[in-house]
Amino acid sequence: MIFHKHKLFSYTIVIALSAVTFACGGTQEKTVSESEPEQMKDRIELIQDETAKRVDVLIDGKLFTSYIYPDSLEKPVLYPINTANGNAITRGWPITPRPGERVDHPHHLGLWFNYGDVNGLDFWNNSSDIKDKTKYGHIAHKSIKSMKSGNEEGVLEVSMDWMNNKGEVLLTENTSFIFRGKDDRRSIDRIAILTAPNGEVKLTDNKEGMLGLRTARQLEHPSDKPEIFTDASGKATDVPTMNNEGITGMYLSSEGVEGHDVWGTRGDWVSLTGKINNENISVAILDFPSNPGYPTYWHARGYGLFAANPLGQKSLSDGKDELNFKLEKGESATFKYRVIVYSNESIFDGQVNQDYIEWAK
C-alpha cells in the first residue's frame, strides 16, 4: 500500500490554520477540500483493460510497455516496449506491421519467456501459423495476482499455465514484473518461478529459448547475405538480405565479444546498441547469478532475435556443455532477468557492467 505523505502534511496545515483563525477571532472556515492540493498521480502507473486483456504501463504519462494476453497469442508478452522518447525498440509485425520490417518468425513478438523442449513439446515456435498443435505447447494467462503503481516503480504479479494441446498443465508460472524509469532510462525486471505441479518435467537442451526479445528493424545488424535458420524440429525459415539504410545494431557481451560472434557464447550480460529516429539507444539483458545454467548462453541473432538461453547448452556449445534441466513433481526453479533500455547515453564507458554489478547484488 502506498502512503501519500503530502496528505498528512496537508491535514496538519489545515488544523494549524484553523487554530490561528480561531485565535485571531476570524470567522471564515477552511475546508480540507479547499486547502488540500490536488491528488498527484504516481509516476509509474499500471492500468488494466480487462476487455482488451492488457495492462498498460505508463511512465510520466507516456506508454512504456503493455502486458498483453489475448487468446490469439500462444503466450503472454510485453508489447510494445518504448524508449523514454517514445521510440519502439520492438518489431511491430505481426500485430502492428511497419514498412520495411521483416516478416519472419511469427512467434517472435515483444518480450517473452518460454522454451523449445518441455517434455518433448515445443513452446517456443508455437504461433497462429501452426495448425497442427500436437507437438506444441502454449502458455495461458491465468490471473493478475496484484498490480501496484508507484513513484519509484510499478509492480505486476501474474500467474500462467504451461499446457499441452489437451489442456493439461505441465508447469505453473508465477511471475513478477518490476517496471522502473527515470530520465532517459527504462527497465524491466522479470522474475519467473516455474513449478512442476503434476509430475516430472524435463527441459531438455534445446536451441530455442528462453527469455526472448524481437527488436525493431533499426536495431538489427546490417544484413550482408540471405540466411536460412532451422528450428529444433527441422522447420526452415528464410531470412533474406534487405535494404540496410538506417540499420545500425551491434551486439556487445560482458566478455567483450561483438556482433554476430555473440551467438553461442556465455556471459553475464549482452547489450544491443543502435539508433532509431536519431535517438541513440542501447538495450541490455542481464542474467542473474542464481539462475539455472548461469552464466547464460546467448541466442542472439543479427536479424533481431535477442535471447538469453540458460538451458540449451548442448545446442549452443556445439556439444561441449550439456545440462538437461528438469524439475521433479512439486519442485520449483526461479529465473530472474533485468532488461534496461538506455536512451541518449553511451554504454561503452562500462555503464552496463556497473548496472550488472548492482543488479547481481
Rank of each mutant, 00 (worst) to 15 (best):
E220Y: 07
D355M: 04
W263E: 10
G234D: 14
V283R: 03
G137E: 07
I193V: 09
N125Y: 02
T195F: 10
V14I: 12
P70L: 03
G154A: 07
E29R: 13
N291D: 09
G110Q: 04
E258Q: 11
N291M: 05
D117Y: 11
H105F: 14
T83P: 15
A232V: 00
W263K: 06
T334G: 14
E220N: 13
D60C: 02
I95Y: 01
G86D: 04
A192N: 15
G330P: 07
A360T: 01
G167M: 06
E50I: 04
T172V: 01
S343H: 13
A360K: 08
D104G: 03
N85V: 12
D261L: 03
T134I: 13
N151L: 11
D184G: 09
I188P: 00
K133P: 01
R54W: 00
L252S: 04
E45H: 07
A140Q: 14
Q351P: 12
D318S: 10
K53H: 03
K329H: 14
G293Y: 01
R301A: 00
K275N: 08
K235G: 01
H105A: 10
V155H: 06
K135M: 15
K145G: 05
K361E: 15
G120N: 12
F288A: 01
A19Y: 15
W263R: 15
S233Y: 14
T195D: 12
G264R: 12
G302M: 04
D321K: 15
G304D: 10
E258V: 09
S317I: 04
G249R: 04
T134K: 12
P106K: 02
N164S: 14
R301Y: 08
P226W: 10
Y356A: 05
N198W: 06
E74I: 01
D56K: 08
M1Y: 10
G264N: 03
P295G: 02
I81G: 08
L305E: 05
D117F: 11
T12N: 04
K326C: 06
E173F: 09
L272Q: 09
A196E: 00
N125R: 13
N151G: 07
D205N: 13
E29M: 07
G154H: 06
Y294T: 04
V257L: 11
T27V: 12
L170P: 03
G25L: 11
A236T: 06
E152W: 04
S332M: 05
N309E: 02
T273W: 09
A19E: 15
Q313D: 14
W359F: 11
D268M: 00
P289L: 11
V158S: 05
T237K: 13
K148E: 04
I47H: 13
V158P: 06
T51F: 09
P76L: 10
P97F: 08
V14H: 10
Q28K: 12
K202R: 03
L171R: 06
S253I: 10
W269Y: 05
Q39R: 15
E328S: 13
I89L: 07
I68W: 05
K320M: 14
F177H: 06
S72E: 08
D183E: 07
L213W: 00
E200T: 09
N85Q: 14
R186E: 03
T296N: 09
D231K: 07
H107Y: 01
